[in-house]
Nucleic acid binder design. Sequence first.
DNA 1: AGCTTAGAGTTCACTAGTTGGACATAGACG
DNA 2: CGTCTATGTCCAACTAGTGAACTCTAAGCT
Lengths: 399, 399
Amino acid sequence: METPGSQSSLHRANLERVVRAVRLAGSLTQAEIARTTGLSAATVSNIVRELKDGGTVEVTPTSAGGRRARSVSLSGDAGIVIGVDFGHTHLRVAVGNLAHQVLAEESEPLDVDASSTQGFDRAEELVNRLISATGVDRSKIAGVGLGVPGPIDVESGTLGSTAILPGWTGTKPAEELRGRLGVPVHVDNDANLGALGELVWGSGRGVRDLAYIKVASGVGAGLVINGKIYRGPGGTAGEIGHITLDESGPVCRCGNRGCLETFAAARYVLPLLQSSHGTDLTMEGVVRLARDGDPGCRRVIADVGRHIGSGVANLCNLLNPSRVVLGGDLAEAGELVLGPIRESVGRYAIPSAARQLSVLPGALGGRAEVLGALALALSEMGDSTLLDSTLHATTPAFT
Amino acid sequence: METPGSQSSLHRANLERVVRAVRLAGSLTQAEIARTTGLSAATVSNIVRELKDGGTVEVTPTSAGGRRARSVSLSGDAGIVIGVDFGHTHLRVAVGNLAHQVLAEESEPLDVDASSTQGFDRAEELVNRLISATGVDRSKIAGVGLGVPGPIDVESGTLGSTAILPGWTGTKPAEELRGRLGVPVHVDNDANLGALGELVWGSGRGVRDLAYIKVASGVGAGLVINGKIYRGPGGTAGEIGHITLDESGPVCRCGNRGCLETFAAARYVLPLLQSSHGTDLTMEGVVRLARDGDPGCRRVIADVGRHIGSGVANLCNLLNPSRVVLGGDLAEAGELVLGPIRESVGRYAIPSAARQLSVLPGALGGRAEVLGALALALSEMGDSTLLDSTLHATTPAFT
DNA sequence: AGCTTAGAGTTCACTAGTTGGACATAGACG
DNA sequence: CGTCTATGTCCAACTAGTGAACTCTAAGCT
C-alpha cells in the first residue's frame, strides 16, 4: 500500500476514473473518455495503453466522422466475481465480470436440515461447475459475495442465533468459504443483499435511497442510503419486522407484542388459513391461490399489505426514501399486495414524504440476493460505480 | 475550477490533508504531520511554508528533545464562519473560526409576530455587532449557516408552509441573508442543525450515527448517518413526530390519528394541564414544576417520555443508531423524561438494536441549533473533519 | 566544558505523472 | 482530389512529491 497523496496514488485514481467512465457508458472512444473524465487527451492515451497492456480493456476500431476513433470497452475476462446465496430452501450461485455482466447463474435446492459442512460442500461444487462452464480463468477471480439468511455480525463474520438454517449458528461462513476457494469472501444478510441486487440490476436502478422489504418466514428490510447499504453501527439496521404496530397485538418471537412480523410474516399468517385451506400451505401457495381468485387468500394478502404499508409509512416518515421495493415470496402477489401497501402508506405517512415515493415489486424475484452478492463482491473490490446507475447489464434468463 | 485528476488537485488535496491533521490534533510539529498524513517530511515542509505564507497556519517554537521543533497550529483568524438561528422566540448568532472554536455568541428575544424583514434586519444587526465585538476582519467571513424552525426545501431554499413563524412562508431565507451579508449562506431546519451541533460540540461527539430528537411545539428529529446529516431524497427525513403510535388516537394537525406528536408535543400536551394549572403554561413551566415535585407535571412528562420512547424504539429498529440525543425544552427535565424513554425503548426495540444505544440529554441546550449552523457553514466550505471528533473546541459560557 | 546523539526541518537532485501543442491519421464531403 | 474535421500520439515543459544528504538544536553523558 503506497502512501496516499503521492503521484502514484493520483495515477491510480485516474486509472479508476477511466475504468469507471468506460463501465458506465459501456464503451467510449478515447476522446469521449477525455471529455467525460476531464483528463487531457494525452493522459487518456497513456492510461488506455496501460489498461490495454494489463488486459483490463479492449480496443476495437470504429467508424466515425473524422479519423477512425477506437472504441474502448472493458474486456470481459479482466476479472471475475462470484455471488453465493444460501436461502432457506435454495442455494444459488452467479458468476459475473467487472463490466457488471452476469455470465452464468444457477440454483439448486438445499436441504434445510443440511449441516453447514454439507452446505459449503455444495456451494464449492456449484461454484466450480459454473467456473468451468463459463470457461473463465480461475486466477481471475477477484472476490466472492456471500449471502446468508440470518443475522450476521459483519465485523466478526459470525452467524447469529436466529438463523433459518439450523446448525449453522456460530459458524463463520465467509472464513469457511474463503478457505475453500482461496479468494476474499464478503458476507451479508439476505435483506441487505436483496437491496443491493435490486439497486444495481432491478427495480432500484437510478435511485440512491431505497428500502428493500423482504417478506418471507420473517420480515426484514435492507436499507440503501446514499447508494450504499446501511447496516448501522451495531449491524442491525433495517429490522422493520419488529416495529410495533399494536401494543396489545399478538406476541412475537422477539418477545414483544404486535410487531409488524406478527401481521405479515409467513410463520404468523399461514396458520390463519390452515383450518380452511389445510396445514401444508406455503406462502407461495397462498399467493398462487390468491391470483387464481381464492377470496380467503386474497383477503389475507390484502391485510398483510395494509400492515406492511403501516410499517413502510413509519419508515417513510423517518427516512424518506425515493423507492420501496418489495421482495420475497409475497412480491409475486403483485398488485394484490402492492395496492393495499400503497393505500396504507398514503394514509399513514405524511404527504410530503409519501409524495415522491414509489412502491414497486422487485424485478429480480428470487435472484435478487445472488445478484446482490455479486454486487457486494464488486463493491468490496473498490468498484464505486455501482450506484451511478444506468447500468446496462445483461441479465441472462435464469436457467 | 481545475480538472480533477491533475497534479494541482493532488496538491490541493494534500494541503487539505495537512490542515485536517492540524485541526484534529490542535497543534502538531511538522514531523508529526508527516507521520499522521503519510506524506514525506520534505512535502510537509513545503506545504507548511505555503500555508504559513497564506495565513492559514501559525508556527510557534517549541522545546523538544532534539532540534527545536516548531509547533504548527491553525491561525485563529484565517477564516470566520457565522451561525444564525431563528427560533420560535429567540434569535441566536454565533461567530467561530476554522479551528472549530466559538469566538462569540449572543441571543436575543424575537417577537413571534415579527415580519420576516424585521427578523432579517435584527439578524444582520446582531451579526454586525458580534463581528465588531470580536474584532475580526469582515473579509475573512467564509460562510454562514442559517437555521429556521420549519420545513425548508434545501434545494430551492424556500420555507414551507407550516413554519412556526407566521408570515415567513414562501420566503427564501438563505437568499435574503446572502443579499445582506454578501457571503454564501446555507440553510437547514432546526432539528437537523441541532443534530449537527450536538454531533460536533455536544453529546454526540465521537459518534457517527445519531438521532437528535427535538421536542418543542412539535416533535422532529435530525438524523446523522455516517457523520453527515441525512435529509432524504425529498428532504423530509426525520419526521418522527408523525410516526403512528395509535391508529385510533387523537387527530393530529397532519390529518392522521395517533401520531407521536399528539402524545408528546407541547401543543397537544399543555392543554392536559390547563384545567388544573392554568392556561398560560409553557413547556418550560411544566418542566420547572415537575422538577419542583409537582405530581401532575411529573406524570405528564413521564407519559410523554414513554411515548417518545415508543417512537425511538421504532427508529432504533430501523436505523440502529449508536446514540439518541434529546433536545428542546423537554430535555431540561433530565431523568424525569429520559428514564421513561429508556424504559420504553428497552421494551419495544429489539434487544440487539437497543443494546448499544445510549439515550442522552443534549449538552448544548438551546445553543445546539446555532452551533449546528456554525458546523453547517464549516462543512459546506469543505471541512470534512467535523465527524472525526475528539474536537477540543472551547465553547465559551453563553452570554 | 566538550562530545555525542537523536530528532527536526531544509535543500536539492531526481522521478512520476499530467498537459498543451504540434503532428500524423483517416474518413467525409464537396 | 483537395479540404476539412475530429482522433489519437508524441514530445517538451511543467508540477509536485520523495529520498538522501545536510544543518540545526537541545539534551545527556563524560
